[in-house]
């Protein structure tokens, strides 16, 4: 039953199929972005960005959600970045492979795989209820911080490992301590890579819904402190779309979100490429 095809033709067919697979993935991405921007951009005006929503979001804008998104994500980064970078420094500069580092790595890998809804449940019971923070920017930010910690940590570790060993040797040979070596030589060299990781973490935080909706809440007001409840753009979009409140405003919010994500990813990529060019 085999049709005689010579190997050369077979090889070509395989190559064409692989190109096709890549194009399909690309097409899906292009389709999603195009749909959201095409339908959403007309709704995005300056007043949409700068006004508060009226009538549950049917009218008005998304200003409080923009503020909430920035506040929650910023808080998450402020907490996660030092922890993630600290972990990376510990793993690369202060210890060799031991049972403990294996446990630390395993924990981070597992944390990276925990679904966002579990973070939502945990954040709700731990930060909102147990620690009495209520639905607030604080609860949401801390929950997100736990969620993006593995991302920050992993990229920071990779960036730090990429710093040439000769830099460390040179530093140590002058009598510098480990910490001086880390702060004076290792971190400055690894900074672009670390920042890339943090930016990727920001991207995850901005787009997150499940972990935030049960921890930051869904108040329509502008948060006035880290103890105020808040509704991020992703949550707002989810509520508008799911409850069918306003298609137009849902699209508008989605467009803002997608543009933000695009910008964040582009920035991260640009930094990464520059970093690699410098290293290579």
């Amino acid at each position: 039953m085999t049709i005689p095809i010579d190997v050369e033709t077979k090889h070509r067919i395989v190559v064409v199929l692989l190109w096709l697979a890549a194009l399909v993935a690309l097409a899906v991405l292009a389709f999603i972005i195009a749909v959201v921007l095409w339908n959403g951009l007309p709704a995005v005006t300056l007043s949409f960005l700068l006004e508060s929503p009226r009538d549950m979001g049917r009218a008005g804008g998304i200003f409080p959600m923009v503020v909430s998104t920035v506040a929650v994500t910023l808080l998450a980064v402020i907490v996660a970045a030092p922890l993630g970078v600290g972990t990376a420094i510990y793993l690369t500069e202060y210890t060799s492979e031991t049972a403990l580092t294996r446990v630390i790595r395993f924990g981070a890998e597992c944390l990276a795989g925990v679904p966002s809804i579990i973070f939502g449940l945990f954040g709700f019971i731990f930060f909102v209820i147990q620690l009495g923070m209520g639905w607030s920017v604080l609860s949401g930010g801390l929950t997100l911080a736990v969620m993006i910690l593995p991302t920050v940590m992993r990229t920071a570790e990779e960036a730090i490992r990429a710093v040439p060993e000769s830099f460390r040797e040179a530093s140590f040979s002058t009598g510098a301590s480990r910490w001086q070596t880390v702060t004076q030589v290792v971190l400055p060299s690894a900074l672009p890579g670390i920042v890339t990781g943090v930016i990727l973490g920001v991207g995850r935080g901005v787009g997150e819904t499940a972990a935030v909706i049960f921890t930051a809440g869904s108040s329509l007001h502008i948060p006035t402190s880290i103890f105020s409840p808040a509704r991020t753009m992703a949550v707002h979009f989810y509520i508008l779309a799911r409850e069918g409140i306003s298609m137009r405003h849902a699209y508008g919010t989605a467009a803002v979100l997608v543009i933000l994500i695009l910008a964040i990813n582009t920035a991260a990529n640009w930094l990464m490429l520059r970093f690699q060019a410098k290293q290579g």
Partner: peptide, 12 residues
């Protein structure tokens, strides 16, 4: 005791 290595090791 300062040290100089086989290959130049300027810091960035």
């Amino acid at each position: 005791m300062a040290m100089v290595f086989a290959l130049p090791t300027p810091l960035p």
